[in-house]
């Protein structure tokens, strides 16, 4: 936001309310992801159920933010930084909503898992998810501070997540091979891993939006990409 405040106070308040809702929604997503990861790694159904139940709250945030954005455009005709605040809020909220859905999906699969997971696999999942959680926290901090450099860092770190995801995939494939009789669990784990990676991608989208919000220009260059996805687990 600009340092000076609007002459029309109610306009200022509307923009601030939009800003606060994005932050609240972001924090809800952070919580959802944190709980979903605890649930799957410790086989804790209670947390998984909380995530599933709370997703409704995240969806509501998205609807509220969408209405606020439409109202601002229709009634205030925002310009310059205000326009960028308004448009990026809309885009960020839809990425956050997807993050909420993916955390919910991880939790649903958690409830369907039959067996305890081997330690290697849990470790690999924790490694990638810890990274994604850190990214999500950083991107929300970048939004709060209106920091394009923090956003750029998040954007660049996505590469690491892609690599950790591949390592995790290898563990899942190993698990699948060792538990041929339990294809269900293996399949759920593949999706869980992919979901975590997707959350990382949405976080990167948000980083791009923050960069645009602050600088008024788009982040240049190709998105950093990790190694090619491993399909068979055998190089």
């Amino acid at each position: 936001m600009s340092e000076a405040t609007h002459t029309v106070k109610s306009y200022e308040e509307e923009l601030q309310s939009l800003n606060k809702n994005i932050i609240k929604m972001g924090v809800s997503c952070e919580e959802a992801l944190g709980k979903a990861i605890i649930a799957i790694t410790t086989r804790d159904s209670e947390n998984a159920e909380t995530v599933i139940k709370n997703d409704e709250k995240i969806d509501k945030f998205e609807t509220t933010i969408e209405q606020q954005v439409v109202n601002l455009i229709a009634l205030r005709q925002p310009m310059a930084i205000d326009l960028r605040e308004t448009v990026t809020a809309l885009k960020i909220s839809s990425d956050l909503e997807r993050i909420g859905d993916l955390a919910k999906n991880i939790s649903k699969r958690t409830l369907l898992l039959n067996e305890n997971l081997p330690k290697n696999l849990v470790d690999a999942l924790v490694r990638v998810s810890t990274n994604v959680q850190k990214q999500l926290k950083s991107v929300l901090d970048a939004y709060l501070d209106r920091s394009s450099s923090m956003a750029t860092n998040v954007w660049e770190n996505d590469e690491q997540i892609d690599e950790l995801t591949n390592l995790c995939m290898q563990e899942v494939i190993k698990y699948l091979k060792e538990h041929e009789s339990n294809l269900d669990d293996g399949t759920h784990l593949l999706f869980v891993t992919k979901n975590i990676e997707r959350i990382g991608d949405h976080t990167t989208n948000i980083a791009e939006q923050i960069y645009y919000l602050v600088e008024g220009e788009y982040l240049e260059g190709d998105r950093p990409k990790g190694t090619e996805p491993i399909v068979t687990g055998e190089k």
């Binding site: 600009s2 000076a4 405040t5 609007h6 002459t7 029309v8 306009y11 925002p78 310009m79 310059a80 930084i81 205000d82 326009l83 960028r84 600088e215 008024g216 220009e217």
Partner: peptide
């Protein structure tokens, strides 16, 4: 450019209604 991403803070404050 002026209405999406002006260079000058005074321009921005004026067009967004933050003047004075």
């Amino acid at each position: 450019k002026i209405f999406k991403n002006p260079e000058n803070n005074k321009t921005q404050d004026y067009i967004t209604g933050r003047f004075g």
